[in-house]
Structures are given as C-alpha cells and as structure tokens.
Amino acid sequence: MNRYKEVLIKNIWVENPVFVLVLGICSTLAVTNNLKNTLIMTVGVTLVIAFSNFTISILKSLIPGKVRMMIQVLVISFYVIIVDIFLKAFVSDVSKALGPYVGLIITNCIIMGRAEAFAQANNALISFWDGLTSGLGYMYVLIIVAFFRELLGFGTVFGFRVLPDNFVNWTIMVMPPSAFFMLAIFIWIAKSFKKKEESK
C-alpha cells in the first residue's frame, strides 16, 4: 500500500507532469478558456493514460524492443478513438467545441512518457494507478487555469454568471496569450511553495 501512496504524492506534487516535468500541455491548453470543455478533456486524457498504461504494462514482455514506440502509439490511439466516439455520442456539443483536440491526445507527451518511464518496468495494477494519478495531477492544474480564465474572461463559472453585471470582461483572458500567462503564474506560485519545503 505504501508504494501506491508514494506514487500518488509523486505524481500530484513532487514530480507533477505539468509544472515540474512540463509535459503534455499542447493539446489541452487550447481549451482552457472554458471550464466545462477543460473538465471533459482532462477526464478523457486521464482515462487514456490509465488504460494505455495498464495495457502496455500487460503487453510489455510481448512487444519487441525495436517497434516499442509504434505499438505504444497504436495502443494510445485505440483508447483515444474510444474516447472520441464516446464524446460524439453523449456530449456532441462539447465534442464539436473540442474539435481536433480530442485526436491530439494521441501525441500528448505525458501518455508516451508514462508508458515509457513507468509501465515498461512495473506490473499492471500499479501502472494503472500511476496513469490515474498523473492524470489527476494534470487535471487539477488545468482546471485552476481554466477557472481563472473563464471567471475573468466571461465572468462565469461553468456557464453560470457569478460576477456582477457591471464587471468588464477581460478579453485577453479568452485569447491564447493568457493561457501562457496563467500557467506561468501557477508555476511561479507552486515552485515558491516547493522551494520553502526544500529549505525546511
């Protein structure tokens, strides 16, 4: 059980995929101006990481070393297609808004990174747990970014108006540059906390 706890803490805080390793922000940063889309997108990413980690870990002794990357990509695309079909069937409006970004989960570097670094060397169950927790570590960072972007850009949270009507929307928050700024501020805050922890 200890090992599971260790993996959890590592993936959520110590080696968080977003602000420590800086992996996989490509496909998801683009949708962070809307909380609902971000939530669905990151849930999709988390499920894909967990299941592809699980599958690759089971298959690891069967895959020849030379074509390893190719097989991993195929396994990942298989799960991404399932997520895509699922989204099209149940939440078609979100699926339309996400557009090509769902397909781009395939090239999200976190998934390849976890498969290569963890699933190759560990058993199936803990690989699944590792995928799930790194997905969660990724999710909460992007949800925070999306929360502030939607709040300041549209004055809403999950589509409900929370700020008073005379609040002037910050147009920049809806546009791409703000995603970089918000993420940078988040990294700044997270890293200064980490610095304090280390000096103790």
């Binding site: 700024f181 993420l183 805050i189 890293k191």
Partner: peptide, 11 residues
C-alpha cells in the same frame, strides 16, 4: 528564482 526556467519562458 521560482520563475526561472519554464516560468519565464511561458511568459
């Protein structure tokens, strides 16, 4: 210091 590296690059 906490902004060094990735942080300042993103900005």
């Amino acid at each position: 210091a906490p902004l060094k590296g990735v942080g300042i690059t993103l900005i």
